[in-house]
């Protein structure tokens, strides 16, 4: 199934990506942000806070935003 994945870390791109049916937020995070700690990010599904176990559905909108972003 396809979901919209928005990564506000780095470039800040939004992409439609393919994920397996039944994928959870945690699985997607581990896949997209290897080595990163979920506690350092705001993770939203369909603009609402999400738990690690939340199962994604087709056309879900997942956004990942770092809690700490350095200004200049």
């Amino acid at each position: 199934m396809k979901i919209l994945y928005i990564n506000n870390h780095g470039g800040g791109f939004a992409d439609h990506i393919e994920v397996e049916d039944g994928s959870t937020v945690q699985k997607l995070f581990e896949q997209k942000m290897p080595g990163a700690d979920p506690a350092d990010y705001l993770i939203r599904v369909d603009r609402l806070p999400a738990s690690a176990e939340q199962v994604l559905s087709a056309d879900s909108r997942v956004s990942v935003t770092p809690l700490k972003i350095e200004g200049a």
Binding site: G11, F13, I69, G71
Partner: peptide, 12 residues
């Protein structure tokens, strides 16, 4: 001065 957030803000 948005620093590291400059590019994500522009895209958003």
């Amino acid at each position: 001065c948005a620093g590291d957030a400059a590019a994500p803000i522009s895209h958003a």
